[in-house]
């Protein structure tokens, strides 16, 4: 990747001040997103996905802070940007966001077109007419009649509202879109409709995207690279094929096993016992240790670092002291795991 990456995170730790002390929501997270790349960030509830998303657009909650590490956008460190810098230089025109639970993110008493005009006027010097024209174009891109830009949000169905938000996110031609659970509230068919438009945007080759979701299948279908998080730590990252075929972190391969696949209704689901811990202060242990069947004492004494997995040629980083042995033990314990003989759906 000779081209400059769009976004780089280097050992980023993000903490919240709480009554019980400093809660470490993200610890030493690192990943890189190239130009035009769709990057999936997966993990269970509370693992720090939204915290990363909010940090990237400078909207971390008031009690939150980036305690260490560097975030570079197009090479430029942005972790110390002020609110004003974010507004003037980044939001909407460089980095835009499709927030979690988008259903409530449009102002219910303002026409959608007016909301777009306002964004344009705050962040660019587009005229009203230019803004409207551009917004109409985008409505067509996301498959809503352009005349409907003057509707109020409540006149839209959930899926349309979500697409209107995607139109807003694309509005000022950003280089990076952060989508936090963009379809969690939608039905499968609507979800698929939304991803159809996200695919098209990718084909046009404009923006990169961080897709944040708890649904690993969306990432496997729609992204190039993936990072799997567990309780603030990045467990494993690489391109989706590598992670699918050859994941080495116990949480990563167990999560894959826990995920239902409707093509194999008879496959037994893997169970990951226990719950992620709440991490206070410095995290100098593997956060998966209490749930990991392969844990050893070492895992409690030090946080494993992300290291290149030798078996793969591409970038494939794993943060586990025992990735080799654990993987083998897991393979052995799985009863004939590879013979997914009960397949009902033939691959097309």
């Amino acid at each position: 990747m000779s081209e400059q990456p769009i976004l780089e995170l280097d050992d980023v730790t993000i903490q919240y001040r709480t009554a019980g002390g400093m809660l470490t929501a993200v610890s030493d997270a690192s990943f890189t997103i190239g130009k035009g790349e769709y990057f999936g960030l997966v993990g269970e509830s509370g693992c720090g996905k939204s915290t990363i998303a909010k940090t990237l657009i400078g909207a971390l909650d008031d009690n939150g802070q980036i305690s260490s590490g560097e975030i570079r956008y197009k090479g430029e460190p942005i972790q110390d940007y002020t609110e004003k810098q974010f507004n003037q230089e980044l939001r909407w025109k460089e980095i835009s966001m499709i927030p979690q639970g988008s259903m409530n993110n449009l102002d219910p008493i303002e026409k959608i077109s007016n909301q777009a005009i306002e964004i344009a006027q705050v962040h660019t010097d587009m005229t009203r007419a230019e803004a409207l024209e551009r917004f109409e174009e985008l409505f067509e891109v996301v498959g809503i009649q352009k005349s409907r830009i003057h509707d109020y949000p409540h006149q839209f169905s959930g899926g349309m509202e979500q697409r209107a938000i995607i139109a807003l996110a694309l509005f000022l031609n950003p280089s990076l879109i952060i989508a936090d659970e963009p379809t969690t509230a939608l039905d499968v068919i609507m979800q698929d409709q939304v991803f159809k438009y996200l695919d098209e945007i990718r084909e046009e080759g404009g923006a990169s995207m961080v897709l944040i979701t708890h649904d690993i299948s969306l990432v496997f279908e729609s992204c190039d690279d993936i990072a799997i998080m567990h309780s603030g730590q990045i467990a494993e990252t690489g391109d989706i094929e590598t992670i699918y075929d050859d994941s080495r972190h116990p949480y990563a391969f167990m999560l894959k096993g826990a995920f239902p696949d409707h093509r194999y209704p008879d496959r037994e689901l893997e169970i990951i016992d226990g719950y992620p811990p709440e991490n206070m202060g410095e995290v100098n242990y593997c956060t998966f240790v209490d749930r990991c069947p392969y844990a050893v004492d070492e895992c409690r004494e030090m946080a494993p670092e992300l290291e290149q997995w030798e078996g793969t040629e591409s970038d494939h980083l794993v943060a586990c002291f025992r990735s080799e042995d654990a993987y083998e033990e897991h393979q052995r314990s799985m009863p004939e795991s590879d013979s997914e003989s009960t397949e009902v759906h033939g691959d097309d």
Binding site: V188, I189, D192, S217, F259, D261, R263, V344, D347, D348
Partner: peptide, 30 residues
């Protein structure tokens, strides 16, 4: 799951994401 009959069931099942990057599912036509 294998052989939905009603066009709506077909659409519904075809829209379920598949956790496998090697599987090329087509996006919904609905």
């Amino acid at each position: 799951l294998r052989e939905p009959k009603h066009p709506y069931s077909q659409a519904l099942i075809d829209a379920i994401p598949v956790p496998d990057p090697h599987y090329n599912r087509e996006r919904t036509k609905i």
